[in-house]
Amino acid sequence: MDSIADMGGVLGYGPASRPMADEPPFAEPWEGRAFAMTVLAMGRISGRNLDAFRHALERLSPLDYLADGYYGRWLNAAELMLVESAVLAPGAVDTRVRRDRGEDVAEPAFPEPRKPEYAPSAPGSLREVADPPRLAVGQAVVTADVHPRGPSKLPAYLRRRRGTVTAVRPAHVLPDTHGVFVGENPQQVYTVGFDSAELWGPDAEPFRLHADLFDSYLAAVTGTEDS
């Protein structure tokens, strides 16, 4: 889906900051706790998977996504997953904060449980597919023009762009379906190289960007096609 989380290649947010060589993994103690709570909420409690967690991040409001920082997003996404699994009632966290402040507020009602019946077919995310790779190194390709309602690992700035396959990678579960529990649908993955001018126009700084993309995102380009 198109969301605030799809910020790759977007202008106006300033340069990305580089971490210091000796920077600790967590800037504040609460960030480490947020990390642990989210991992626990994602798997053992809510029954979600990594792709579902990423989809939860995509569904946060733009205001919360930008205002709460990196691990603040993790906490918001963990709360969303727990609510959708009926582990938490909607608004339960805010209600607890208000009650701790002395406000007289009622406990929110729990929704119907929606914990997915999910069991991976194998450990991790790598899978085997029966068909050989459809594309080869050196093949010119064009990316799909998609605006899905659910998750997608094809960034907006790479849609409808031409590139060249530079490597064939192992097959991987498809996040588009895995993140919403409608099947693993493993696909071949390819590394595709794009010229910066193809992505951001002729005035872009010259460089080549590489992205790992799923088979269903790519169409082969033949010499007879229009530029």
Rank of each mutant, 00 (worst) to 15 (best):
A156H: 09
P132K: 01
A56Y: 05
A211V: 00
W74E: 05
F35E: 03
R149T: 09
E117F: 11
Y65N: 08
F53P: 00
E84Q: 10
G201K: 08
L80Y: 01
I45A: 07
Y217H: 14
Y70L: 13
L82R: 15
E117Q: 15
G91D: 02
T164M: 02
L199F: 08
V165K: 04
F35W: 12
P151F: 08
G12H: 02
D64T: 14
V39F: 04
P90R: 02
M20A: 12
V221D: 11
E103T: 06
E58K: 10
Y118L: 01
V97E: 04
N49D: 05
G163L: 04
G8D: 03
G124E: 09
P132H: 03
G163W: 09
V180P: 13
A77T: 12
A52H: 11
W200E: 15
M42L: 15
P108H: 08
T143E: 02
P15H: 06
A109W: 00
Q139G: 15
V87N: 08
E198A: 07
F181P: 10
W30R: 14
D226T: 11
I45C: 09
E198F: 08
L88C: 14
S152Q: 00
G69A: 12
L66C: 12
V180I: 06
A36M: 06
T95Y: 06
P202K: 06
G124C: 09
D94S: 12
G179V: 01
R33N: 15
L209C: 03
L88P: 15
D51M: 03
A21N: 11
A144W: 03
R149L: 14
E128H: 11
L60R: 00
P108D: 04
G32E: 07
D176H: 14
S121Q: 01
D6H: 12
V97M: 10
R162Y: 06
V83R: 14
E79H: 11
V182L: 07
T143C: 03
R149I: 10
Q188G: 06
D203W: 02
Y65C: 10
S196W: 00
H172D: 14
V137G: 14
T222M: 03
Y217R: 14
E225H: 09
E225Q: 13
G12K: 01
S121P: 00
D212G: 02
L126A: 14
E205N: 11
P170C: 15
V93M: 12
L50A: 05
F214L: 08
A27E: 09
R18F: 13
V97W: 11
D6I: 02
G9R: 03
P186V: 04
P111L: 07
G9F: 00
D145E: 12
E198N: 13
W30Q: 10
R149W: 07
P132M: 01
N49V: 02
E128R: 13
V141Q: 10
S17R: 02
D22K: 12
G69C: 06
P202Y: 04
E225V: 00
E112Y: 12
A67Y: 06
A119Q: 07
T38L: 12
P29D: 14
